[in-house]
């Protein structure tokens, strides 16, 4: 299937946003909106993107609803149910129905929003969840979140070896609920992203997308390198592009020859302590081994 997104779908996101320059989350949302079109209602929990709807004006053409931090999928349940009733009564034409899109960062998705997401998946709610994952609470100054990777520095984790814990495997947690569709994406691979959103758009039921969102402000790199950092995340194997459907996980892009993870890490200030003042070969080795171990279990 060939889809010309530029001409076929009016972008549901206008120009001019208040996100930081080079925001990888914004890139992913923009590309997603291009596929989804205008007939959307975003249900949002507090995060970087909350500012999009309010200050000083919104780039969204679609609608927007705020919920409490833990509750965006619950809010989406209410919206979907109400839209369904209006459709049944004939008050909304099927053509005018809205895609209900939950939009949250990793803080909500990986943390306190999990319970509400689990409930929505349990009820087979017809919605699309887009999580922009910048691996920390970016909007409040990049404190640690459950998505923060091993060894990274954050505003609340400044030890010599960075975060002791590891990034939570949200993909596996969500997959365990057997949703209709689940995928990881990154804006640096726009065709892969667009195909997945297109696929999700055609389906009904819970559809979940985790977009790794390179964050110049929180990760510490020049905004002009957002796309490069995103490509490195994939090419080093740190961010596997994959999807889950009908009980199967399929990798949609397998790097022919993975680059060393160091090439991704050394370009970000949050990992600078692994290189300066002394190179920490132990932790760098752990991080490489973790990625190698993951890909050892992937069959092409």
């Amino acid at each position: 299937m060939v889809t010309k997104y530029h001409s076929a779908s009016p972008a549901s996101l206008g120009r001019g946003t208040v996100t930081c320059a080079g925001c990888g989350g914004m890139q992913a949302i923009r590309q997603t909106c291009r596929v989804l079109g205008e007939k959307t209602v975003f249900v949002n929990a507090a995060g970087c993107m909350s500012l999009l709807a309010v200050y000083p004006f919104t780039p969204f053409h679609g609608s927007w609803l705020y919920t409490a931090m833990a509750s965006a999928p619950a809010g989406a349940q209410g919206v979907r149910d109400a839209l369904d009733i209006l459709r049944d009564k004939g008050e909304i034409a099927p053509d005018n129905d809205l895609q209900v899109v939950v939009l949250t960062g990793d803080g909500s998705a990986y943390g306190m929003g999990l319970s509400a997401t689990s409930g929505a998946l349990d009820r087979q709610l017809d919605f699309l969840y887009l999580c922009y994952d910048n691996e920390g609470y970016g909007n409040t100054g990049q404190q640690t979140s459950a998505a923060t990777p091993h060894a990274a520095h954050t505003a609340t984790c400044r030890g010599l070896e960075g975060l002791a814990g590891v990034k939570k495997d949200l993909f596996a947690i969500w997959a365990a609920h057997d949703p209709v569709y689940l995928a990881t994406v990154i804006a640096s691979y726009p065709n892969d992203l667009a195909r997945k959103i297109e696929k999700a758009k055609q389906l009904r039921g819970p559809r979940l997308i985790i977009a790794l969102a390179p964050c110049p402000t929180g990760w510490g790199f020049d905004p002009r390198y957002t796309t490069t950092i995103g490509k490195l995340a994939v090419d080093t194997g740190i961010w596997p592009l994959k999807e889950y459907r009908d009980g199967q996980v399929v990798h949609t892009h397998i790097p022919a020859q993975r680059l060393p993870v160091e090439q991704y890490l050394k370009r970000q200030q949050r990992f600078a302590h692994l290189f300066e003042p002394q190179r920490n070969d132990v932790v760098l080795g752990e991080l490489q081994a973790e990625v190698d171990h993951y890909w050892d279990g992937v069959t092409p």
Binding site: G107, Y137, N139, T140, G141, Q143, A155, T156
Partner: peptide, 11 residues
């Protein structure tokens, strides 16, 4: 847990 304007406290 982080939230503005108090995140300096946990930091």
């Amino acid at each position: 847990y982080p939230i503005t304007p108090q995140s300096d406290i946990p930091e």
